[in-house]
């Protein structure tokens, strides 16, 4: 047993402070993005979610320029972008798509500007990589309380709005008829999504944040039919992906090329993708089994239908 453990967890894994912080932050963020992401997938807003992450990198780089923690920059600009998408997007899917694209284009333009200024003002060129691709091990200890608090607030707001959000995601007309303020819920949801994406951007990087926001929820929605269950399953899948990613990244210091760790973000993304494919394969197998069970059924029904009154017509 000990051998298995020591093969899995490289020496010093649990003793390392950055690792412990990464495990906590990663789990908290994965739970939030899982819960928020289920609605992102149901509402078909994966593009908006991704755009918020990338646009956030403009804020991250601007905050870096001003000497603040990138998280605040991420979040500030992501919330502004969320408002703009909602404002421009109207309710037609295609107009929404274009509005998201335009906000994304403009945001990336700003990111280009700020990253350029970052690179010229400080002599370190690594800032672009840190902001865009992130590193769980580099999350500063003093940000931990803020991250946990923001996550708790997001989950709380989600819990309060849960039923209204679900109803308006299924049918905005139905929700409006029941007196749900659909527009306000839509904006509130985009703001929560902006916060969740910013948290993910802080941990696995702005352009990979989408992996946590879309991947585990899409996987969960393949595995479970109940929306409430999907929130939980998505959070758990996210936690597993992040923790396993941290373990593998820590282990990878001993993999080739020697003395060089593989990025955590890569492992998290790859695991999320594999989980999605496996869930798809599982549901495919389940469907095939159900179909085989039904293959005998038509014959039974066909033989039974002779007595059915419908045939007397």
């Amino acid at each position: 047993m000990n051998e298995v453990l020591s093969a899995l967890f490289a020496p010093g894994f649990f003793a390392s402070d950055p690792v412990r912080a990464a495990l906590v932050v990663g789990a908290v963020v994965a739970l939030v993005t899982g819960a928020v992401g289920v609605f992102t997938v149901i509402r078909g807003q994966a593009f908006a979610g991704h755009a918020l992450g990338e646009v956030g990198s403009a804020g991250g780089s601007a905050a870096f320029l001003g000497g603040a923690n990138p998280l605040w920059g991420f979040m500030g600009i992501a919330i502004v972008a969320a408002g703009l998408i909602e404002l421009l997007g109207l309710h037609r899917p295609r107009a929404r798509d274009v509005a998201t694209g335009l906000v994304l284009g403009a945001g990336l333009g700003l990111a280009a500007l700020f990253l350029y200024l970052d690179a010229t003002s400080s002599s370190t060129t690594g800032v672009a990589v840190t902001i865009l691709f992130g590193s769980l091990f580099a999350v500063s200890q003093q940000m931990l309380p803020s991250i946990v608090a923001l996550s708790a607030v997001s989950l709380l707001v989600m819990a309060v709005c849960y039923r209204m959000l679900l109803l308006s995601s299924l049918s905005s007309d139905l929700a409006a008829a029941r007196g749900v303020p659909v527009r306000a819920i839509g904006i509130a949801y985009l703001v929560i999504m902006a916060v969740a994406v910013s948290l993910a951007a802080e941990t696995i990087g702005a352009i990979l944040a989408t992996a946590l926001v879309v991947g585990p929820p899409a996987t969960a929605l393949r595995l479970t039919k109940r929306p409430g269950g999907a929130l939980l399953v998505a959070g758990l899948i996210g936690v597993v992906a992040v923790w396993l990613g941290i373990v593998l990244a820590y282990d990878s210091y001993y993999w080739p090329p020697a003395g060089h760790g593989w990025p955590v973000s890569f492992f998290v993304v790859a695991l999320v993708f594999v989980f999605y494919l496996v869930a798809g394969a599982l549901t495919g197998i389940a469907q095939a089994l159900r179909k085989r069970r039904w293959e005998t059924a038509p014959r039974l029904a066909a033989s039974g239908c002779a007595e059915h009154p419908g045939d007397a017509v």
Binding site: R290, K291, W294, A297, P298, A301, D311
Partner: peptide, 13 residues
């Protein structure tokens, strides 16, 4: 014409 979709008889004869 009869059609079965996902184990449900949608059209019969």
């Amino acid at each position: 014409v009869g059609v079965w979709l996902a184990g449900r008889e949608v059209l019969r004869d």
